[in-house]
Write a protein that binds this DNA or RNA. Sequence first.
DNA 1: AAGCAGGGGACGT
DNA 2: ACGTCCCCTGCT
Length: 267
Amino acid sequence: MIKIKNEFFSIKDIWNSGQCFRMHPIGEDKYRVVVKGKCLEMEETQGEVVLFCTKEEFQNVWEDYFDLKEDYSVFFRNVSKEDRYLQRAASFGKGIRILKQDLWEMIISFIISTQNNIKRIRKCIDLLCKTYGKEIQEGIYAFPEPEELKNVTEEELRGLGLGYRSKYIVKTTQLIIRQEVSLEEIKRMDYQEAKKELQKLTGVGEKVADCVCLFGLHHFDAFPVDTHINQVLEREYGNQFPYEIYKGYRGVIQQYIFYYDFMRENH
DNA sequence: AAGCAGGGGACGT
DNA sequence: ACGTCCCCTGCT
């Protein structure tokens, strides 16, 4: 059991920040996340996070996953004092961190996210895991590997409710299985190269590529612009957002804005 | 009650 | 540049 008290680390903030679709509440202040065949239960009360795992597992897996070696107070403090909106957004989502998630899982997850809402995205991904992923504990399934989706047809995926995204997933899986696009090479590329390469995949446009870069490759300058973010940039900044100020951690700023706007819309 | 709009976009023309 | 794509939810 690991206890962490850090005002810049909150599961409550992270689970609804839209970067992770496999984190679920499992009770009062309790959450569970499934990552690469491992499952972690967490509890957060009074600003303290408890991770139910051994010290060894924490050091090998979760410390890196939650990016806990990075000091997010720096990004928070660097928010422009004159930018009242961003000040509010950052304070609201102070506990957000950019998770280091699996590249393949991010690609498929954000293909599913297009023209879709978070609730249904979660449902689709859960169903995908239950149908094709390995059962790692009773009732808990890992995200299926590319090999496990190799022979899946468009019709099968449509049966899961993935709609027109089904053919994108079939095609993208084929491109990766055939190594026409190499995940390992993408991991070695810088942000701009990786973003361009990802867009060779079917169903991956600029926005999805940016999400994958930020959440699956930890490229901190990726700044995904969706309809919500776009509205904020227009409304609050007249489409003149000062990107240059935040070089090196624009993705963190994007998350503050997205989460703040998302929670205001939905509550 | 059923009908309709819209949701973290991308693709093909 | 613009219509279309699939399913679900919430509104009317």
